[in-house]
Amino acid sequence: MMSDDLVEPVDTALRDQGEGLADQAARAVLAYREGEREPLAALVHVMTPLLWHTVRAQGADPEQAEDIVQNVWLTLVRDIDQIRDPRATLQWMLVTAKRAAWRTVRRSRDEQVRQSNDEHATDWLTTPVEDLPDSVAVRSERDEALWQHVRALPDRCRKLLGLVAMVERPDYAVVSQALGMPVGSIGPTRGRCLAKLRAALTADPTWSPS
């Protein structure tokens, strides 16, 4: 049992570092196939926000986004026996959600094309603080500098950073690839989007990292 003492800390350290949504999703899929539904129910809780924001970042309105997110989950469960690599579940769900959002957004734009020109290209995270409800605006005062600099970012950087912020480090690569960003666009290094935001923030005297 001496050897266990030596091995265990390493094991624990690895587990703490390695466990992300992708791993949790893989385990949930395998468990579900064995007839155990609890892990998937837990996954719904932790992953639905990420799916929601992924879909919203593509420009789907809230009502469309609810349907899309629910359908992604239903599709997963219906096709769960066909998943060849459970480790790719997170990636698959993000890509599925993103594409469904594109289709929906394109369709509703086609319908509205006569009324308005395409001015509402993605405006995710661009709401000015003063347009938010008062209660929200007050709560967000301490983040005001952050908000201003995020709004100044290119659309793709805003999406990347906003969605990566929803997950832990082991999932950065999956999230950025699902968005169509190149490998290494974030983690283990900062990548250009985060570098841009960080440079802007650290040069802004009204921002402090505390």
Binding site: L125, L132, S140, L146, A165, M166
Partner: peptide, 11 residues
């Protein structure tokens, strides 16, 4: 950023 996302567009 996570706070901002949740504030602007809550689930």
């Amino acid at each position: 950023l996570a706070r901002m996302v949740e504030t602007v567009d809550p689930v």
